[in-house]
Design a protein around this nucleic acid. Structure first.
Lengths: 228, 228
DNA sequence: CGCGGCTTTGATGTTCATCAAGTAAAGTGG
DNA sequence: CCACTTTACTTGATGAACATCAAAGCCGCG
């Protein structure tokens, strides 16, 4: 499903296209497409040719790879205004990971050649793009290191906090990740993710109602994440 | 110790400064400094202000963070021509990790403002820089995910293979990492790193003589890394 | 209705961290 | 240069954390 988009009104323009001038914006608009993805849809698959630079307008996506044993391993979760394309897009011809919607999402795709042309012509834009995309890569690296050093309970607490803080900015939210996906994200088994969450529930740290999660004791959850 | 460097002869110029023209190169040269670091020296500390863009001319460096418990956690190992500054340098004002030499190294520092100016003025250079630096970030992310899913023996085998292949391009090499550093890199205890390496030695997969390592059975080590 | 996927809990086993203890190597001060 | 201290390395024994296995309940959907 293709939605028409008037760039001038796009809330993303201000985020990193503020350096566009006149016909640059026009040229840019003609080459992009905004696509709606239903929960479960793939935005692209590992191995696909890289043809566009993509960013997330709304919804939630997961970036993941499939291990040789056929299990999925989630690299990170992206929320509104996050980049779907990491910097690799400038150096690789084929995707090194898959992206799928875990909540209904709208992704804006811009032809990669077009972006490259703009980078060459517009220095301010280049710098801005590097800042944004570099910050994203950096965050992923730091997050990965952080998850690695936590124990099972800490890992699960960390994910819940991240979803609450970074993605939904709310203590109550509809967890778009299944228990198995949290497992694939943290590197813990599904059973132990459930055990951790059940424990948090019993301790009145969180309230669970299916996929609806409410963080009741933020401080306790932070402690578990930090010291666990 | 400050070494003078004639840019025109620098082997790195061809790597990503091939787009420089006339006075750009001159201006660039005047703002950079090439520094020698002895094994153990810090290139910079986590929290330091970001003042330069740095790349490694020779030697081996470790990029690492210190956990709240005071233990080091190695993010990655950098070899010749690798970037020391990840893309974060364009978005952050202070270093988010420390860098230290684990083997005598020469690092070239370029004033960060200077790089930013060049990015703004020279589109080809911007694109080239994005390609290189993006590839580096991407590799770190993939490596982190890969290490995470391996078991203890697989992790250690992976590191040995990486040092042999990526850093030294030789089956025999002088391992610059202590057993403890391999532990900090893989997230395994020092004792278990040693147990894994002893096992490899007993199986005649590797030969150990202090810090000198020779990979005797490359295929076996790959199998352990891939399926372990 | 029944099948398959997701969730949950309990029992069991394996992996790996921790603890302990000793040797070797490398730096330090007299 | 040698006693001394400290740091790196090594091996074994024990226990805790976590994966695996098993079984059952709970939807949602064809």
């Amino acid at each position: 499903m293709n939605i028409t988009c008037v760039c001038e009104k796009c809330e993303l323009r201000t985020v990193f296209f503020e350096n566009f001038k006149g016909n640059q914006l026009e040229s840019f608009c003609s080459k992009k497409s905004e696509i709606f993805y239903q929960q479960g849809d793939f935005v692209f698959h590992e191995g696909d040719e890289v043809t566009s630079f993509s960013y997330l307008k709304s919804g939630v996506l997961k970036l993941f790879t499939t291990t040789p044993e056929g299990k999925d391993q989630i690299i990170t979760i992206a929320g509104p205004y996050d980049f779907v394309s990491l910097l690799g897009i400038f150096s690789i011809s084929h995707q090194t990971y898959s992206v799928a919607a875990i909540d209904d999402a709208v992704v804006c795709h811009i032809d990669i050649q077009e972006i490259k042309e703009i980078v060459k012509k517009n220095g301010e834009f280049s710098l801005h793009l590097m800042e944004k995309i570099g910050g994203t890569s950096n965050k992923i690296i730091r997050e990965s290191m952080e998850i690695r050093r936590k124990n099972t309970y800490g890992k699960v607490a960390y994910i819940l906090l991240k979803m609450s803080r970074d993605i939904y900015a709310n203590q109550t939210f509809n967890l778009p990740l299944s228990r198995r996906e949290i497992a694939e994200y943290t590197g813990v088994t599904t059973e132990n993710v459930i055990r951790a969450m059940s424990e948090f529930r019993k301790d009145k740290t969180i309230r669970i109602n299916g996929h609806e999660i409410e963080i009741l004791d933020m401080e306790a959850l932070k402690r578990i994440s930090d010291y666990g």
